[in-house]
Design a protein around this nucleic acid. Structure first.
Length: 270
DNA sequence: AAAGACACCTGGGAGC
DNA sequence: TGCTCCCAGGTGTCTT
């Protein structure tokens, strides 16, 4: 499910619900996530005050007085705030019970997500070599051009590589390439500088617009209130194979890159 | 170092 | 109805 806009939407929902609350209990119903929930996870969190909720790439950083609870939603994970008396449902794997009668509840059918405690998330193995945030000023055309130089990998897979830039997943990679007018299979190293400049702008624009709409719900993504995101209506190519391009009416084409579906308009993108 | 394949897992939809 | 197959918002790890 979640790319950067969905994770950011989740962060914004969590912040007012978690900040300045105490975690009075932790329930781990199923520790078998992508990486098993560690045995001492609950004891690290129990009794702690939540100080802030931040985000790095697609990781949510729940800042505690001592260390952080770091969450990744994987493909199908979601975090909701529910009244603590609501019974857990299928795939509700982890709860943080708060001192205000509410519970932060993690649901993840495919169990590709993970959660762990750490005292220094940015130096953690999973986060330390991540590229820049796409919405920050450090992500600019000169940076991208330097990284792309000499690379033969397809531009779509290149911008989905979190070591290059974080947060661009399968939906927004196709969408950003459409808006930049670039075909997804072109080698990253052969994209001209002015095209890369357009691509940087498109990535920023698409992600910002999606955040404004609360993200994209295709199947099971919901925000912390259980509501879907509404950016799906604004998609130009993703999951629109054989439908007319919203700009030129040409049929949208689907292909496979790196075992993922890619969508593009053969006329608008060159 | 870079590129590509594969792995993890469940559920929903299509086709028979 | 029920089976099989394919596909899905991610990304670490292994092989070439």
């Amino acid at each position: 499910m979640p790319e950067l806009p969905e994770v950011e939407t989740t962060r914004r929902g969590l912040l007012p619900a978690l900040k300045n609350r105490h975690i009075i209990d932790v329930v781990v119903r199923d520790a078998r996530l992508r990486w098993p929930v560690e045995a001492d996870f609950a004891s690290h969190l129990r009794g702690q005050l939540v100080v802030d909720v931040d985000r790095r790439a697609k990781y949510l950083l729940v800042k505690l007085q001592e260390g952080f609870a770091v969450w990744h939603l994987g493909m199908s994970g979601s975090l909701r705030i529910v009244p603590s008396h609501v019974p857990a449902r299928l795939h509700d794997h982890v709860d943080l019970v708060l001192n205000d009668g509410k519970t932060l509840r993690f649901n993840d059918p495919r169990r590709f997500g993970c959660v762990f405690w750490t005292d220094d998330p940015l130096r953690h193995k999973l986060l330390r070599s991540l590229g820049p945030e796409p919405l920050n000023d450090e992500f600019h055309v000169s940076y991208l051009a330097a990284k792309a130089k000499g690379r033969s990998v397809a531009i779509k897979q290149f911008i989905m590589n979190a070591n290059i830039v974080v947060g661009v997943g399968n939906i927004y990679a196709s969408e950003a390439l459409f808006h930049a007018g670039i075909r997804p299979r072109r080698a990253a190293g052969r994209i001209k500088r002015d095209e890369l400049a357009k691509l940087v702008k498109s990535i920023k624009k698409v992600l910002s617009a999606a955040i404004k709409q609360g993200g994209t719900t295709l199947r099971d993504y919901v925000n912390t209130d259980g509501a879907p995101g509404y950016f799906r209506q604004k998609l130009f190519v993703y999951e629109r194979v054989n439908e007319p391009c919203r700009v030129c009416k040409t049929s949208i084409v689907q292909l496979t890159q790196g075992q993922r579906s890619t969508y593009y308009c053969p006329v608008c993108q060159r």
